[in-house]
Amino acid sequence: MTRADERAASVVRSWTRLYTARMATSVRDERREEIDSDLWEHACAGADAGLARRSVAGQMLARCLLGVGADLSWRAQMSLDGRRIEEEGVKMGESFKRNWWIVGPFALIAFGVYATLAHIVGDGFESPWERTAAGWDPTLAARAGSVLLVGSLFVAMPVVALTVRRTHPAWTIGLFLPWVLMSLIPLMWGDAGVWLIMPVLGITTFIGAVVNLAQRSVEDPTTVRSAPPSTTREARLL
């Protein structure tokens, strides 16, 4: 393509991107790719026929403009039809309703990482960087080692629990239970202050996990039972 038809094609592509925005990925990509192919073929056919490039560009723009109404009605029709466009949105909404509690462990982990850093190099929630600027604490290595060990467990347990939640739901509960108990530790302190966020997040996450697994067991009992290893191996071989 040359500059005139490239510019025209670019305008058509922009319009296509606009009216297909937020549609289901497959429908959107197919329409965009099809228009892209059409523009390429149009430019080649124009060159083969010896048409002036501006003329081809004008044809492209005219085809785009004259089709705006059809583009919009096609888009509206797809929206009303709903099957293609809303399918993904519904899936996302359903998924969020079921799995909102997964946010809990990650929020708690983020909080835990910050709190651990603050504990190692500062007092409470004093910025860790302020303390390091003041000088090296000789007990820092020992404190860091012990806190990192507990911190690693605190991070690893929910990660493993979430990873195996579909195949081994009982393990998920088994790992979450001690994890939640760990998150309750601040309740034993006299003035836990901001640390109370730990038990709140821990308990909320645990309740969310239990409710999720209970829902799944009611809807489809086979999904929460661990398949015997032999069966799994046979299925894979088949």
Binding site: R31, I35, D38, Q59, A62, G67, A70, D71, L72
Partner: peptide, 14 residues
Amino acid sequence: RGLTAHGTLYKALD
């Protein structure tokens, strides 16, 4: 008649 507009053509094909 000219080339059919993009929107008209592809909507009909769909």
